[in-house]
Design a protein around this nucleic acid. Sequence first.
DNA 1: GTACCTATTCTTGTATACAGTTTTGAGGAG
DNA 2: CTCCTCAAAACTGTATACAAGAATAGGTAC
Lengths: 248, 248
Amino acid sequence: MSKKSTRVDFACKALRQAIIEQALPPGTKLPEDELGARFGMSRTLVRAALAQLQSEGLVDAPPRRTATTAKPTLEQAKEVFEVRRTLEREVVRLVILRWRAEFGAELEGHVRQEDAARKGGDERVSIRLAGEFHTKLGALSGNALLARYLGEVVSRTSLILALYGRPHSADCAVSEHREIVAALRGRDATAAIALMDHHLGSVEHRAMLDQGRDGQFDLGAVLSRYVDDNATSPKVAPLPRRKKRASK
Amino acid sequence: MSKKSTRVDFACKALRQAIIEQALPPGTKLPEDELGARFGMSRTLVRAALAQLQSEGLVDAPPRRTATTAKPTLEQAKEVFEVRRTLEREVVRLVILRWRAEFGAELEGHVRQEDAARKGGDERVSIRLAGEFHTKLGALSGNALLARYLGEVVSRTSLILALYGRPHSADCAVSEHREIVAALRGRDATAAIALMDHHLGSVEHRAMLDQGRDGQFDLGAVLSRYVDDNATSPKVAPLPRRKKRASK
DNA sequence: GTACCTATTCTTGTATACAGTTTTGAGGAG
DNA sequence: CTCCTCAAAACTGTATACAAGAATAGGTAC
C-alpha cells in the first residue's frame, strides 16, 4: 500500500522480505545510518520505512533507541493467530462467494510452485511461497482492506515462526494448501473453512510447541534465543552485526 | 500504537480527531507547511503523522501532491463495513468469553455518557462517543491487535459517514448500544452477535441511503461531491483532454 | 472570449546539520 | 577481579536547506 515515494517503499519491501525470510533474525539491530548506507538513501527515508514496518508489527522501535526486528511475545503471537483465523475464515467465505474458474487455475499453479520449491530445497523460497498462498487468497476475496490486514498477519506469522517455530516449519503446508484449494473449487465453504482452521491450527501448534514442551512457556526458550542471538556464533547475518567504524 | 516521539503522535491524534469529527471534511487539503505551523513543528514530523494517517486510511497522500483528508469510494466503504462486521463479531465473541462484572459497569457507564451527550446536543461529542463504544469493546476483547484493527475501521466508518451519511447520523445508536450491552451481560453470544450485526447494518444503511435514494447509487452523488470539491471550476469540460480526477 | 503557453509560486522529496540521549568502554577504587 | 564513574562513540529527534515537480496566473494568438 501507499506507493509513497517508491524509495521508502523499496526499503520497506527489502526489509520486510529479509525479516520474513529470517535473514534478519528477531532482535537484530537496525540502525538508521547503516540501513541508509546499504540502501543508498538518507536516514529520512529509512526512518519512514521503519515507521511503516513498526506499524506492521515487524519492527520494534522504542522511543530513543535503535530499532530492531520485532520479537513478539507469546501473548502477541497468540493474538496474531486469533486475528488471522478470523480473517482467513472471512476470506474463504468471500472467495467461494465470488468463485471463478480462473481462481482454481491460479491457486493450483501456486501450489505447484510451492511443491517445486519444497522439493528444490530452497527454504527461503518455500517460506515466501507459503505466505503468498494466503496473500493470494486474500486478493481473490475482492476486498482490498481485508487483503491488507491478512497480509499483515501473515507477515507477522512468519516472524513468529522465525522466533518460536522449529526449523523446516513450512514443509507440510503444501498438501494442506492443496486440500484447501480442492474444497474451494468444490465451493464447499464449510469444508474449506474447516480445512483452513485445521491448517492454521497446525501452523500455530508448530510455533507454540517449542514453548510448551518443558512446562515454562517462555523463559527457557526465549533465553536460549537471546543466547543464540548474542553469541559470537558464525551464523551469517547479512546486515546486522555492529561493524567497526570503517569508511566515513 | 507506537508511542513514537509523542510529538508526531500528538499531531496524529489531533488530525485524526478532527477528521473523524468532520472538522476537516473529506477532500480538505493538508499542506505540510501549514500543519507544521499550526502544530508548532517542522514538516518532518507532520510528514510522519500524515504517513501514519494514510496507512489508517484517513488521509490520501498521492506521490507528489498535497495530502488531503481521504474520500473513500463507495466500493472502499463497502469493504470497510465488511471487515468491520467480521471484526466486531469476533470481538463480541471474545468479550463474552472473558466476561467480568466490571465490564458491564464500564459499558453501561459509557452508554449513559452517550445518552447524555446526545441529549446535550453536542454532535461532536456524540460522534466521538459512539465510536468509542466500539473501541472500548475492542479493548475488552483482550486482543490488542484485534482492538487496533477494529479501531481503524471504526475511524474509517466515521469518515465514511462524514462523506456519505446524512446529518444526525449517530443518534439512534444509543439504544442499540444499550441492547448490545444487555446481551453481553447475559453472555448470550448469539443474541449479541445478532444485535451487533443489526446495529452495523443500520449504520451502513444510513451511510448508503444517501446514495441510493435517487435511483443511481453513485454517479449523481459522487459527481456532486466532485463538483462541490472543485468549486470554482466550470462545468464538465467537453474536451477529450483528461479532466481532473481525484481518486484512482 | 477561448485555448495555449510560460513565468511565478506553492509544495513536496530528500539530504544534511546539530543537539540531546543512550550505549560503550577504559580506567580507578574497593 | 568486580563494581562504579565518566567521557567518547553511536544514535536518534528535529529543523532546515535546496532541488524538482505541480498548480496557478498572466499574457498572447486566434
